[in-house]
Computed example of a mutant assay.
Amino acid sequence: MLSVDSSSLVDWLMTETNDERFIDNIFVEMCGKLLEAGIPVSRGTLHFRTLHPQWLGAKILWRKGLREAEISTFGYGVEDTAQFRHSPVSDIHGGAAVVRQHLEPVFGPSPAYPLYDELRLEGHTDYIAWPLKHTLGKKHIITFASDRPGGFSDDDLRFLADLLPAFALVSEIRLKNRLARTLLETYVGPHASEQILAGATTRGSGVTVGAAIMICDLRDFTGISDLWPRDDVIELLNGYFDAMSEPVEKHGGEILKFMGDGLLAIFPLSNPSACADLLHAIREAQVAMAALNDANVKKGHKPLGYGIGVHVGDVMYGNIGSRSRLDFTVIGPAVNIASRLESLTKELKRPVLLSRAFVEMAGCQAGMEHLGLHPLRGLGEPIEVLAF
Rank of each mutant, 00 (worst) to 15 (best):
C216Q: 09
V233M: 06
F27R: 03
F358R: 01
C216S: 15
A129N: 07
T329L: 12
L373V: 03
A387D: 14
R350S: 13
W62Q: 00
L2I: 10
K59R: 12
A212H: 04
E29Y: 03
S343H: 01
A82W: 05
A334K: 07
E284R: 12
M14K: 09
G210R: 10
L218R: 00
D19K: 01
E79K: 00
A212P: 08
R340F: 00
I173G: 02
R178N: 09
V207A: 15
A265L: 08
Y127W: 13
F22Y: 11
N319I: 10
I255V: 13
T45S: 11
I39K: 00
K257G: 06
V209M: 15
K298V: 05
F84Y: 15
C275K: 05
N296K: 10
P382C: 08
A290F: 05
L164R: 13
V359K: 02
V98N: 02
G309R: 00
M316Y: 15
V78F: 10
Y240Q: 09
T186Q: 09
L119M: 15
V188G: 08
L46G: 02
F328I: 13
N336L: 03
L348G: 06
E104K: 09
L278T: 11
R181N: 06
A166F: 08
H47S: 11
I224H: 09
T73F: 14
S355M: 09
V207D: 15
I337K: 01
S273P: 02
R85E: 14
A334Q: 06
V4L: 12
S146E: 07
Y306R: 07
I224D: 02
R377L: 11
L179Q: 08
N271K: 12
R120W: 07
S343K: 09
R283Y: 00
V385L: 05
V89Y: 11
A161D: 14
L121H: 10
I71K: 10
H124I: 00
G65Q: 09
T81G: 08
T345G: 01
Q195R: 15
D261I: 03
V41E: 07
R120D: 08
A276Q: 12
L164N: 04
M244A: 13
W62R: 06
D91H: 13
S7H: 11
K33M: 14
V28E: 07
H374N: 04
V10T: 09
N296T: 01
G363S: 10
G57L: 04
S270V: 12
G380N: 15
E381G: 01
G239H: 10
A276P: 01
L183W: 02
L51I: 14
S8K: 15
D91T: 04
F258G: 04
I215R: 04
A200C: 11
G378E: 02
A198Q: 14
D226Q: 14
